[in-house]
C-alpha cells in the first residue's frame, strides 16, 4: 500500500492538472502583475503627488488631491474636452450598435456578391492608422459636402473626388423648414453628420453580429414560419433575443474604441509626454478612466436587462 502512495508523488490528479493549468497561464499572470498591477499602482502614486523630472529619473512628493483639483478647476481645457468626449461617446455608441446590427441582418441575407460586400464593410477596421484615418476623413468630408474644417488647399486638390456643390448641409437646412421639434431636428442632424464615423467604426461590430446571426439555428425560424409569425414578430422573438448577448460585447468594444480615439486621451498623452507633466497626466488618465468605467457599468447594466441568456 505504501508503495502506491509513494508513486502518487504527493499530488492527486486534479492537483497536478491545477499546476499544469497555472503553468499554461503563467505568462499572463506574470505580465499582469509586472506590467498592469505595478503600473496602476504607479499611476496612483503619480496622481496623488507632485513629480519633478530630472534627466532620466524623477522624484515624487505627496500632495493629496491637488492634481485632481487642478484638473477640474485650474486646467483651461480638460473639463470641456472630457465632457465633450463623453457626450460624443454616449451619442455615437447606440447609433453604431443599431447600425451594425441592421447591416449585419442585411448582409446575412442571401444575395449575389455578399462576400464582396462583407469584405468591403470590414475594410475600415483595417485602415485605422491615424494618418490614414485623417486623410480618408478629409476626402470623405469633401465628398459629402464639407462640414469639416478642411484646409482649402486640400479641398481644391481633391475636389476631383466628388465635391458636390449642394452638400449635406444644404439638405439639413431644408429640414429646418419642416416644423420639427428643435431637439429632434438636432439629433437627426447630428446622426446624419456622424454617418461617416458610424460607418467607419462599425466594421468589427458588424462581423461579430454576423457571426451571431449565423449561429442561430434555422429550425427556430422554421417553427416560427409554421406557426404563422410575421417577419416583424420573428425579429423580436427570435433574432433579437439570440443576438442580444453580443449586444454587451459590442457595446463594450464600441465604448472602448471611441474612447481610445477621443480627444481626451490625446490630451492625456500630450500632458504626459509632450509637457512631461507626469502627475497631472496621471490624474487626467485616472479621471477619464473612471468616467469611462462608470459609463460602461451603467450601459452594461441597462443593456443586460435586454439580454436573453440561453441556458
Amino acid at each position: 500500500m505504501t508503495g502506491v502512495v509513494k508513486k502518487r508523488r504527493g499530488m492527486t490528479l486534479s492537483q497536478r492538472r491545477a499546476v499544469t493549468g497555472l503553468l499554461f497561464i503563467s505568462p499572463f499572470v506574470l505580465g499582469f502583475l509586472l506590467f498592469y498591477v505595478r503600473s496602476l499602482w504607479m499611476v496612483g502614486q503619480f496622481a496623488f503627488s507632485e513629480t519633478t523630472t530630472e534627466g532620466l529619473g524623477y522624484t515624487t512628493r505627496f500632495i493629496g488631491l491637488e492634481n485632481f483639483r487642478y484638473a477640474f478647476t485650474g486646467h483651461p481645457r480638460f473639463t470641456q474636452i472630457l465632457t465633450e468626449s463623453l457626450i460624443n461617446m454616449v451619442v455615437d455608441v447606440p447609433l453604431i450598435i443599431f447600425f451594425s446590427l441592421f447591416i449585419a441582418i442585411v448582409l446575412n441575407q442571401k444575395f449575389r456578391g455578399r462576400t464582396v460586400a462583407r469584405a468591403i464593410f470590414f475594410l475600415p477596421a483595417l485602415l485605422n492608422a491615424p494618418a490614414i484615418v485623417q486623410a480618408l476623413d478629409l476626402v470623405r468630408a469633401m465628398m459629402i459636402g464639407g462640414s469639416s474644417p478642411a484646409p482649402s488647399a486640400v479641398v481644391d486638390s481633391v475636389s476631383g473626388a466628388g465635391g458636390g456643390s449642394a452638400g449635406i448641409l444644404y439638405y439639413i437646412d431644408l429640414l429646418g423648414d419642416i416644423a420639427l421639434p428643435e431637439t429632434v431636428l438636432e439629433y437627426i442632424v447630428g446622426a446624419v453628420s456622424r454617418i461617416n464615423t458610424v460607418i467607419t467604426m462599425s466594421g468589427v461590430q458588424i462581423i461579430i453580429f454576423l457571426a451571431a446571426l449565423q449561429s442561430i439555428s434555422p429550425s427556430l425560424y422554421e417553427v416560427a414560419k409554421i406557426e404563422g409569425a410575421t417577419t416583424y414578430e420573428t425579429f423580436w422573438k427570435i433574432t433579437f433575443p439570440m443576438v442580444s448577448p453580443l449586444l454587451v460585447t459590442n457595446m463594450v468594444y464600441t465604448v472602448l474604441d471611441s474612447f481610445v480615439n477621443s480627444r481626451v486621451l490625446q490630451e492625456v498623452y500630450d500632458t504626459m509626454f509632450g509637457e512631461q507633466n507626469y502627475s497631472v497626466g496621471a490624474a487626467f488618465s485616472l479621471i477619464s478612466m473612471i468616467s469611462v468605467c462608470g459609463i460602461l457599468g451603467i450601459a452594461s447594466y441597462a443593456v443586460s436587462k435586454l439580454v436573453y441568456y440561453d441556458n
Binding site: 499572470v29 496602476l40 499611476v43 474612447f259 481610445v260 492625456v268 504626459m272 488618465s285 478612466m289
Partner: peptide, 24 residues
C-alpha cells in the same frame, strides 16, 4: 479572479498604464 484580470486588460485602455511602462 484571474479571468477577471483578462477582462480588465481588455477593458482598460493602454493609455492608463502607458506612463509607468514608459518610465520603467
Amino acid at each position: 479572479i484571474l479571468f477577471a484580470c483578462v477582462i480588465l486588460v481588455i477593458v482598460l485602455p493602454a493609455h492608463s498604464v502607458i506612463l509607468p511602462l514608459y518610465v520603467t
